[in-house]
């Protein structure tokens, strides 16, 4: 067979490559992969929700502590002012 004919025969046999078939049905593996992916996404979501919750709790504690400290400072200042006023009054008397 000459070269050209040989090449044409081979190119014309391309249709035979359409006949590849899966050995096994992939449905179950596909469904398993989908379930695994869904579980992974849910786990990641839960992780982020936990982190967000911890951050919120920490921020709340911080602001409560800050408020307490601020209140204490205010009270101290008021006491100092009251003492000074008293001292002035005593002096005036």
């Amino acid at each position: 067979m000459n070269k050209e004919q040989w090449i044409e025969d081979i190119l014309n046999s391309a249709g035979e490559l359409k006949n590849n078939r899966l050995k096994n049905d992939l449905l179950n593996s596909i469904l398993l992969k989908i379930n695994t992916n869904t579980n992974n996404i849910n786990n990641i979501k839960l992780r982020w929700i936990s982190i967000a919750a911890i951050v919120l709790i920490f921020m709340n504690i911080s602001s409560v502590l800050h408020a307490k400290t601020h209140k204490n400072k205010q009270n101290n200042n008021i006491s100092i002012l009251a003492d000074e006023l008293n001292a002035n009054n005593n002096y005036n008397y």
Binding site: K18, N20, R21, L22, K23, L26, I30, N37
Partner: peptide, 28 residues
């Protein structure tokens, strides 16, 4: 569609294992 998808994948990558993996990934 799984056989069609597998056939295209196989003819592009020429590896039965990889073609199966790709077929699964397509449907996921």
């Amino acid at each position: 569609y799984q056989h069609k998808i597998y056939n295209i994948a196989y003819n592009l990558v020429f590896d039965t294992g990889i073609a199966e993996d790709i077929t699964q990934e397509v449907f996921v």
